[in-house]
Design a binder for these strands. Structure first.
Lengths: 174, 174
DNA sequence: AAACTAAGACAGGATTGTTGACGTAGACTA
DNA sequence: TAGTCTACGTCAACAATCCTGTCTTAGTTT
């Protein structure tokens, strides 16, 4: 109870790190994630799929041709947890497997046309939210958002995000 | 595949809303939430508690004296889902109930000393991440982060965040 | 008195995650 | 080439977290 620095003359550098600010960040991460993921649930429910299926569709779409091991590393779940979800997506024709050329043990994952279609529908729901938030906040705020989010995640997630960014840059300039 | 605006001379106002930017936001929300929530898992596991327990502790701590109904509205889960988790926390002595004065049907929830203690330990783990992220990004970025997160969540979550902010302001100036 | 509301409880089920063990095919290495 | 390691799949059992639906009790409201 004595951590209130009500009379502190400290500048913004110190002030914005006060406990209440950190707790507000906890709140925001919860609410933003809750409502962002919820946005796609209506479509998923119609198809008898869950959020786990959406995550798999998302990352395969983002990283076409990734191996099962890559996907496990990104999702940070066990092989058995993924098996159920991925198996259902393959059986329903949303995801296709191809034997790796360099390493034939690998099963490289891609979205089928049907899978791309579904992923896009799911994406559009979430897109609305991000677009609204980005528009209201403005470009400078978006840059700040990215920098903070980057700092919150583990360093090894930076690699994934940076790779995706790099791929985007490559396509943009190619 | 034809949504790449590689040769577009559009300014930042339009450019930052390109699809790839939105998809990057999806990635970031996933990774940041994944790693942020994971930060407290070590402590929780020792006590045989899960993330659901942490969420309950967090929001009761943030909003001492809230009713069960309030908590259900914030968490957006069913009464039955909450019952197990809340019941365990009460039985273990982390959370206390008190009959409402205005409405005696209500059970107003507060953290016990033991509950505050645990919540603080859990908080410290997550605090490190936020502090690091905020420090690296700087005050301007933090402001942007807040604005964007606010835009992503539902409007009715704004009320909660604003209320918490207001309470903070009140305490600060009191 | 009747209708509504807050909370708790019981029964049953779905999703998503876990650990552990085992098998196959392919890659690597001594 | 033989032995070892790796990528993937699979079977079994289990745990956490969520769900729907129904019912009861107590207290509030009209």
């Amino acid at each position: 109870m004595q951590d209130q620095k009500s009379a502190s003359p400290a500048g913004a550098n110190l002030l914005f790190l006060r406990e209440a600010e950190i707790r507000a960040a906890q709140d925001m991460l919860f609410f933003a994630y809750r409502d962002f993921t919820n946005a796609a649930d209506v479509i998923l429910e119609e198809l008898g799929l869950g959020r786990a299926h959406h995550r798999v569709l998302h990352f395969i779409g983002r990283n076409a041709g990734m191996s099962v091991g890559d996907l496990l590393a990104v999702l940070r779940i066990t092989k058995q947890s993924l098996a159920r979800v991925l198996g259902a997506l393959i059986e329903d024709g949303y995801v296709a497997q191809a034997q790796g050329r360099a390493d034939r043990r690998q099963r490289l994952l891609t979205l089928t046309a049907k899978g791309e279609d579904l992923e896009r529908r799911l994406f559009e729901r979430q897109r609305e939210r991000i677009v609204r938030a980005y528009r209201e906040a403005g470009p400078a705020a978006v840059d700040g958002f990215r920098r903070v989010m980057r700092g919150i995640m583990d360093d090894d997630a930076h690699a994934f995000v940076d790779t995706a960014d790099l791929a985007r840059e490559t396509v943009r300039k190619g």
